[in-house]
Computed example of a mutant assay.
Amino acid sequence: MIPFLDLKKINAPFEQEFKNKFDSFLEKGWYVLGEEVQLFEAEYAQYCGTRHCVGTANGLDALRLIFEGCKILEQLQEGDEVLVASNTYIATIIAIKQADLIPVLVEASLLTYNFDFEDLERKITPNTKVILPTHLYGKLTDMERINAFAKAYNLLVITDCAQSHGAKDINGNRSGSLADASAHSFYPTKNLGALGDAGAITTDNEALAQVVKKYRNYGFKERYVAEYAGVNSRLDEIQAAFLRIKLKQLDIQNRRRREIAMKYLSKIHNEHMILPQLNKEENHVWHLFVIRSVYRDQLQTHLQNKGIGTNIHYPVPPHKQEALSEYNMQSFSVCEQLYKEVLSIPLSPALSDVDVEDIITALNSFRC
């Protein structure tokens, strides 16, 4: 059996370091917003190529805190519109709503799975203040085009980098450094995954960094003295320690992901499947390898019978979710097509070459 994702196997190479770090953590007796968080924030900012990193409890909070910080800095106000992908993970949209902003859903491109730029421009209104692209599946969206569009309409650019840790643009700039601010999730399944919930904000904006650093901790400007009515969304000290260990290996693990993806792209040959497109190797870190098939359900059953785990990212589009009922009557034909066809196959640094060949053989043997 080849599981879709084996987190224990992924984390196995780090176990002894984790144990040593946990012993040190217990010995110090400092459990919240200590040295490990400060060190991770400095190291991750340097890795991404930004001046600042602020740790948060999770990726959703990272997005929400960016919005709240921009409101405090009077860059946004309640009721402003945010252009967001119709096929993103629902948390991206929830964060917008929690900040009392209005999500405006944009159709997806059938080629890139990111924004359809023609629909993006159609959705602009006088109330539009933010473009929020998600680097879906680990592939950077066209940030040069996004930033040019934002400049033309005087919009903020905030990116959801939950799936794109380490990806680089054509100029070698990393995901997390290509916008006014970026939100990161370190949920255990991510390329840089914690052993629990964790997130971060990266930005070059000094004022925004200082505001969200206070806002994540009840709005305190000093102990027990609150400047803002903030929240409790602090990166755990122990998760920061574990992330520091794994960050050192992130590029190596991303290279292994690319090796596997290249094998899939060159060796999977089946007329019943559409493989993802690759424009530039470094701009994709293959958080997920997502194929499409009009026979998706039969294909998933076929792979299950071959002992290969799969997943669907995602089975229900945001605009069809009960939680977002105000969007239920909207139609996004490309987005809806994707949700009927997408299937994620195993791709992780823990896969062996034999595993990869077995997956390829199983895919190539599928017949409708």
Rank of each mutant, 00 (worst) to 15 (best):
L155K: 09
L140D: 08
A167N: 04
Y89R: 07
L60N: 00
I131G: 06
L73A: 11
I146N: 02
R145Q: 15
T112F: 03
G59L: 10
I96E: 06
F115P: 01
S109C: 07
T128A: 07
T159E: 14
P103Y: 03
P126Y: 11
L156T: 09
P133S: 11
F117E: 00
F115G: 00
Q77N: 09
G59T: 10
I94Y: 14
L178G: 08
R174F: 01
E74M: 10
A162K: 12
A95V: 03
G138L: 09
V82H: 05
G172A: 13
L136H: 09
V157T: 13
E107W: 00
L136K: 06
K168C: 13
Y153D: 02
S109M: 04
T125F: 08
A62L: 11
L110I: 15
I96Y: 02
Q98V: 01
T141F: 00
G55P: 11
I96S: 06
L132H: 10
L65H: 06
E144Q: 08
L120N: 05
A150Y: 11
E144M: 03
Y113P: 00
C53T: 11
T112A: 05
L136V: 12
L132E: 00
A148K: 10
D100M: 09
A148R: 11
D61V: 02
V106Y: 00
R145G: 03
L63M: 15
L101I: 08
Q98K: 14
V104N: 08
Q98D: 12
I72M: 01
L76V: 00
L105H: 01
D160L: 14
G176M: 08
T128M: 06
L155H: 05
F149D: 03
N114K: 08
L76P: 04
A57K: 15
F149V: 01
H52G: 11
L156I: 10
A179W: 07
A162E: 15
E118Y: 06
A62W: 12
I102C: 10
E74W: 08
V82G: 04
R122H: 07
D61G: 09
D116S: 02
I170Q: 15
R64T: 15
E68Y: 07
E74Q: 15
L65W: 11
L73Q: 08
D142I: 07
V54L: 12
V130W: 06
L65N: 14
N173H: 11
L105E: 04
L178D: 07
I158E: 10
L140S: 04
K123S: 05
E78P: 00
L110W: 12
G138C: 09
N173S: 09
H135S: 15
E78Y: 02
A99G: 07
A85P: 14
I90G: 10
S86I: 02
Y137R: 08
V104G: 01
V84G: 01
K168E: 13
S109I: 07
C161F: 06
F67V: 03
E74H: 15
V106W: 01
A91L: 12
I72Q: 07
K97I: 09
T141P: 02
